[in-house]
Computed example of a mutant assay.
Amino acid sequence: MSDTRHRPARPTWTCSGCGQPWPCPERRRIFLEDFQGRRMQLRGVLALFLIDATEDLADPVEQLHERFVSWAYRR
């Protein structure tokens, strides 16, 4: 990852750089830049974060999936 300021702060999964729910818009932009042309790999990485987040957060898994993974399917 190219920018270490926008990392998840566990167990709340807020962004350590801007305080927004992680992955914040800036982290998403960085992910897309870092994984340019490799969306399948990006989705795999995001799925691993999702698994970790389910251990910390009580949100319904559908909401967590939207937050952590689904956005990477959109263009």
Rank of each mutant, 00 (worst) to 15 (best):
L42Q: 07
H6Q: 01
R39H: 07
R74M: 12
R74E: 14
E55C: 05
R10F: 04
R39G: 05
R27N: 09
R75V: 08
R28S: 12
A9D: 06
R10T: 15
P8A: 11
S70M: 08
A53W: 09
R74A: 15
R43A: 00
P21Y: 01
D34Y: 07
P60Q: 00
A58P: 02
E62V: 14
D59Y: 04
P11M: 04
R29N: 11
R38F: 01
T54P: 01
P11L: 04
C15P: 10
P21I: 00
R74I: 10
R28E: 06
R5F: 03
D3K: 00
P23M: 02
R5P: 04
T54D: 05
P11D: 01
Y73K: 03
A72V: 09
L48C: 12
R10D: 09
R7S: 13
R29T: 13
L50F: 15
Q63G: 02
G37A: 08
L32G: 08
D52N: 08
R5Q: 00
W13N: 05
S2A: 11
W22Q: 02
W71F: 14
D52T: 04
E66I: 15
Q20P: 09
R75E: 15
D3I: 03
F49R: 00
E55V: 02
L32H: 14
F49C: 00
F31E: 14
Q36K: 15
V45Q: 06
Q36D: 13
H6Y: 13
Q63W: 12
F31A: 15
R29L: 09
R74T: 14
Q41Y: 06
L42N: 10
D56T: 11
R67V: 07
G19C: 05
A47L: 14
E33C: 02
D56A: 12
F68H: 01
F31P: 09
G17F: 02
F35M: 08
F31V: 06
R10M: 02
I30P: 10
R38K: 03
I51F: 06
I51W: 04
R7H: 13
V61N: 09
S16P: 07
D59E: 15
R10V: 14
S70C: 01
L64G: 13
R38Y: 01
R27H: 04
A53M: 10
T4L: 07
